[in-house]
């Protein structure tokens, strides 16, 4: 076996178990689903070119997801430039649980999710589309990639606190979208204790603006890895 064959074989061995998650992540992340193959193609080609810089034994999954994430952000940027807005100051405090106390549909949905989740794809495509790019990314990296907050922080180059904030808001928005969908279609017939309005506002506490621009190579139109090694996911 030549060196190049051994290199390809090693790359393939690590990549094969990730094909399903990477493809699912790409499909859910991209605004234009017809670009799925192009994005995976670019990311895989880029990662394979830079495979020499991958440190064996480190987190290949995070390394690979980073290439795909950067490529997706670049493609989506035509439709949705990443705006680093306000992140709630009280990040760990997720108020969405209050929603549960005040909305019967949500309570029924949590009690018996299968009724709704059978129609999941119909609603989730639109709901994901309405999330901000970093909300969508944190939600999907957690759900599909099963990454820890720390890994997501390294992968997206945003502080852990922001990961928590984006993830919390993404989950809440998704739940609200699901509850709205269930209500509109009467999926959970009422046996009501009383109608409870769904809270749509974010946490009401003070907020502060985070300057993330310096940490966001995703905004750089250059392909990943065009600059320093850390930005290629090598540190993950």
């Amino acid at each position: 076996m030549t060196d190049s064959q051994a290199r390809a074989s090693a790359f393939l061995e690590l990549l094969v178990p990730l094909r399903g998650p990477l493809e699912a992540y790409c499909r859910r992340m991209l605004r234009d689903r017809s670009q799925v193959e192009d994005v995976i193609q670019s990311a895989v080609a880029d990662a394979f070119r830079k495979f020499d810089r991958y440190a064996a034994g480190t987190n290949f999954k995070a390394w690979m997801f980073r290439f795909v994430t950067l490529e997706v952000f670049n493609r989506n940027s035509k439709h949705e430039p990443i705006v680093l807005g306000e992140v709630p100051a009280d990040l760990p405090a997720d108020e969405s649980w209050e929603l549960v106390l005040t909305n019967d549909t949500f309570e029924a949905m949590v009690e018996n999710p299968d009724v709704l989740l059978d129609q999941f794809d119909d609603v989730v495509v639109g709901a994901l589309r309405r999330l901000a790019p970093l909300e969508r990314a944190t939600l999907l990296l957690r759900a599909i990639g099963e990454f820890s907050y720390k890994e997501i922080h390294e992968l997206l180059s945003i502080p852990v606190g922001s990961v928590i904030g984006y993830l919390s808001r993404a989950r809440r928005r998704l739940r609200i979208a699901l509850a709205d969908y269930a209500t509109e279609r009467g999926l959970y017939p009422a046996e009501k204790k009383g109608p409870g309005p769904i809270r749509r506002n974010g946490p009401t506490g003070a907020s502060h603006k985070l300057d993330l621009s310096a940490r966001m190579p995703v905004l750089d139109p250059k392909p990943p890895g065009a600059s320093e090694r850390d930005q290629e996911g090598g540190s993950t």
Binding site: L12, I40, M109, A143, L174
Partner: peptide, 29 residues
């Protein structure tokens, strides 16, 4: 349970064999 069910639905996808064949071929892997 609810979050797990949502995550499973988000993640549910088998790789498309033809897509990956083309990708790996074009990438030179």
């Amino acid at each position: 349970r609810f979050e797990q069910a949502v995550a499973e639905r988000l993640a549910a996808s088998e790789p498309t064999a033809q897509l990956w064949d083309r990708v790996l071929g074009k990438a030179g892997v």
